[in-house]
Design a protein around this nucleic acid. Structure first.
Lengths: 362, 362
DNA sequence: TTGAAAGCGTTACCAT
DNA sequence: ATGGTAACGCTTTCAA
């Protein structure tokens, strides 16, 4: 009895100063073996209901939670998924869709008892990081974000023989790999179609960097829309750069000063579209009357759909959805509920704003 | 000899199929003890230069990296820092500054051999998550983002007795805690001052949710600017809600329809400012001529400073900087290079756009 | 300068 | 239904 009360006391004070209660202490307290307690906690069938109840109560009382490091060492699973953000850009700021994607994915991780390990490394150290993630046993799976054209990392991940999934696709990679993507080509083709329908011919495309795979697809959609009407998109009005606001401002200012300025702008990013609008306003032109701006990656998804207000299709929330789907896919792969590489194409629409939305040529 | 070549072969094939090389295999291969190899890799002084060289070469050759779980189990340190994003909002999208902050912090983590563990949990499970993070030994430190007024989580973290740091402050918490914050009050006071200088009197403030601590500070700055001139800010023009675009659109539309519409808008968020602009354009008014919009949390930081172009102060990049500073502070706390709670106040300025910037009353 | 062995906190196999 | 014990891969103490 003195013995037990000693432990009681130890545990109580441990509780107070938040010292870790481990399986050993807990089992001693319960007068059971570590094995039984472990089984009780992990829902094994071969433990009586009464003992299980006792175990769970004690665990709760002493605020026990298993040491995840020890658990993962014993099981060989870390229940953690690695995401890598390359520091590829000059500025520290990050594309807003990054947050949406991460939010979507980590929600699903949390629901399934996984956590997300986020690392930011220089682009040239990325392969090395994947390598270490795997061989250090830190993660059970890896997510590759924003693939470039013919992305060598995809083959590398396959060879690394670790579950992985790609947000976006990579043209040039012929082998199978699991991905989740939106239909960039079709979305931009539709947007261009709309502007062409309204009579625009001089349309400027402010695209992202063409090493990024999605940029190539968007450009293709733009060009295809013209081709289908047997007209040619002016190559002088197709721009490609990192999607900053300065880029939008600069290009728009320059292009509006030429002999035949565009009557409409199609932007690959909201940030860039901000620069475009700013430049247009500087020229004394009015959005939605003198000129049209259509942008993808918009934040209008906050506006309620199906109301008296104009309908805005949620591009940003589709990114978050992509995160969810991809996370689910990866978890299933890790837990071997599914095997082969999956592919999911999300149907993203373009965002058409009210005042900044397309108008016909005057 | 046969013996060594057997291992050579084993290791080689392990390399090919990317099987984990562990300390045991590596030391057997080298003909050394695990102890020596471990010491060699971790830079202990008591190992001869020649052996150290051999060890490092072999480690590189066989692509060895220590199992982080085992290491952390043995050392009691996880070299991981936990961030929690509460799922407090109706929508899945996340404030863009979240990405900037995370990017800044994780850069510093990476530089110091730390990684970031990101979890997204329902708001009511947050305390529980911190608890588990600590008692499961998953993290060495915790970052609290976006505190509310009188945030109970701060006291909880202190009691949890784990290194932590807060991005933002919490009025009502009198005890010391480590934080990094911008001067929200002063920034909004200055912006309001500027608009008052230009002759505006009917200024609308579209603020964030007032449970969030930063929103309270911003409102205070707004009110103070009026007070200093012995005039009163109209309470009817102060709004508070989650910073969506719909919020900006709705409030602006309504307020412009009243008898004395505001001549200027001050917005707590770029997203909301988008809604404000959209509504203004719908009324046929022109930005930067008929009306002024000043917004905080802008993305204009992409524009180069000190050029011929107007100077835009980098609010977004200051968030990223906050992430860096906070990460550095937390790491020092974890490694016990510093002890007491630190406080850093970053000097954030308001962003004043060119066309959308403030104009005097006409 | 090097090595043997104990220990970190779990799980899992094999008994009973 | 329950318990003893050997792993998991590393660090660290103690010896040599």
């Amino acid at each position: 009895m003195r013995f037990y009360s000693f432990f009681e006391q130890t545990l109580q004070s441990a509780l107070d100063i938040s010292l870790a209660v481990n399986l050993k202490t807990l089992s001693e307290q319960l007068g059971l073996s570590q094995t039984t307690v472990s089984r009780g906690l992990n829902g094994y069938p071969d433990v009586s209901e009464t003992t299980r109840k006792r175990i769970l109560e004690a665990a709760k009382k002493y605020n026990y939670s298993p040491n995840s490091r020890a658990k993962s060492l014993a099981t060989g699973k870390s229940r953690t998924i690695g995401h890598v953000i390359p520091t590829n850009s000059q500025h520290e700021m990050v594309n807003p869709i990054f947050g949406d994607f991460v939010a979507g994915a980590s929600t699903v991780y949390a629901e399934n008892g996984y956590s997300m390990l986020l690392t930011r490394v220089p682009e040239d150290a990325e392969i090395d990081t994947y390598n270490r993630m795997k061989s250090s046993g830190a993660v059970d799976g890896i997510v590759l974000q924003g693939p470039s054209v013919d992305d060598k990392r995809i083959d590398f991940l396959r060879k690394l023989d670790i579950p992985y999934a790609v947000h976006g696709r990579s043209s040039g990679i012929t082998s199978d790999y699991p991905w989740v993507d939106v239909n960039n080509r079709r979305a931009f083709q539709r947007a261009t179609d709309l502007l062409l329908d309204l009579g625009h011919r001089n349309i400027a495309l402010l695209n992202g960097l063409e090493v990024m795979d999605f940029a190539g697809r968007r450009k293709q959609g733009f060009i295809d829309a013209f081709k289908k009407r047997s007209i040619e998109a002016s190559p002088d009005l197709i721009f490609s750069a990192e999607m900053t606001e300065a880029y939008g401002y600069k290009v728009t200012t320059e292009v509006l000063a030429t002999g035949s300025p565009p009557t409409a702008f199609l932007s690959s990013s909201l940030i860039t579209a901000l620069g475009i609008r700013r430049a247009i306003e500087d020229q004394g032109l009015r959005m939605g009357r003198d000129i049209s701006v259509v942008t993808h990656d918009d934040m209008l998804s906050y506006l309620p759909n199906g109301d008296s207000e104009p309908v805005f299709t949620a591009t940003r929330s589709s990114v978050s959805l992509a995160g969810r789907i991809l996370a689910q896919m990866l978890i299933e792969k890790i837990e071997e509920k599914s095997k082969g590489p999956d592919a999911h194409l999300l149907e993203a629409e373009l965002v058409l704003g009210q005042s900044t939305g397309p108008v016909s040529v005057r």
